[in-house]
């Protein structure tokens, strides 16, 4: 420690102590923080590049904050049918999420709170199906949709995504721990299973509802393989598939646009899911840890 400041070391130690740290924690903290910064860097670089003039992008200066900024790249992005793709994505994700939550809640409720033979076996079949990778069913499903004449349609985008076992699982977990007293009062009034579900159980299932909704919405918003396969019509593309063509790789139509337009495109694409995540972080993390820690 420097002369004249003999208490600096002690003060530093005290500061660490107040945070529950020891001196040996400092290097660990520094390394960890470096990893965190590495993890944040691609996002920062994405946004930073999206505001640069194309001429400032492919250079050897590492400009984290653009020296001069422009929103031209965003204007260029919207010259593509991005709004149309966005509407497709929203229609698809909202319809799928709504149906997933309702069907998942009904099935989860029945499997947890109603009595009927084969209940356990049905749930076991649902869980076992998780082993089947969607990619296996994708080719036959594509054939079927083409044969029915539903390629490039909203039905094709929405229908295959509505049976999500994850949502049944989350709701079943929740309703297993649902206090029976809440249902009893309604039961005394002569409510049948439908009323018990709709007016008592479902409205109280806020937490699993949000957890399922945020995760299923994000899955759908980001869904890639299926929309890529089933859409042959530029106007029916979803946002991730449409914007993927912005890759400035050899042979793509945007090769000459460079990375500034591509980065503006992916910034537009990532804002909804990142915003949802930042505001509802707790539900994402809870939903995922409940959903994965089965058996």
């Amino acid at each position: 420690m420097m002369a004249g400041r003999p208490d600096l070391g002690a003060r530093f130690r005290r500061y660490l102590g107040s945070r529950g740290m020891e001196p040996v924690d400092v290097p660990i903290w520094l390394i960890g923080t470096l990893v965190v910064l590495v993890w944040a860097a691609p996002f920062v670089w994405m946004v930073s590049t999206s505001f640069k003039f194309p001429g400032d992008v492919m250079t050897h200066d590492i400009e984290w904050l653009p020296r001069r900024a422009t929103i031209d790249n965003y204007i260029r992005v919207f010259e593509y049918p991005v709004v149309r793709w966005g509407i497709n994505s929203i229609v698809q994700a909202v319809a799928s999420t709504t149906l997933c939550v309702i069907f998942g809640a009904m099935a989860g409720y029945a499997l947890a709170r109603l009595r009927f033979p084969g209940r356990a076996a049905i749930f076991a079949v649902f869980l076992a199906s998780l082993m089947i990778p969607v990619e296996v069913s994708v080719i036959p499903m594509l054939l079927a949709f083409i044969k029915v004449g539903w390629a490039s349609s909203y039905q094709a985008l929405i229908l295959p995504t509505i049976a999500n076992v994850f949502s049944v699982y989350i709701f079943r977990q929740f309703f297993l721990g649902f206090p029976a007293e809440l249902e009893e009062a309604a039961r005394m009034d002569g409510a049948g299973p439908f009323r018990l579900f709709w007016s008592v159980a479902f409205p109280l299932a806020r937490a699993p509802m949000i957890a399922t909704a945020v995760i299923v919405f994000t899955l759908n918003w980001n869904n890639f393989l299926w929309p890529l396969l089933v859409v042959f019509d530029e106007d029916m593309k979803t946002l991730p598939v449409g914007i993927a063509a912005f890759a400035p790789v050899v042979g793509s139509n945007t090769q000459l646009e460079g990375f500034s337009v591509a980065m503006a495109g992916v910034t537009v694409l990532s804002v909804p899911s990142l915003a949802l995540f930042f505001f509802l972080q707790r539900y994402f993390i809870e939903g995922i840890s409940t959903g994965s820690v089965k058996q």
Binding site: F224, L239, S270, S273, F284
Partner: peptide
Amino acid sequence: MFFAPTVVSATVIGLVWVWMLDTQFGL
């Protein structure tokens, strides 16, 4: 930060990393 990349789509990952890993000017 550690969780954020998981919520964005493959398109975002793909394009951002094509840029990050660019041979000549990539970060």
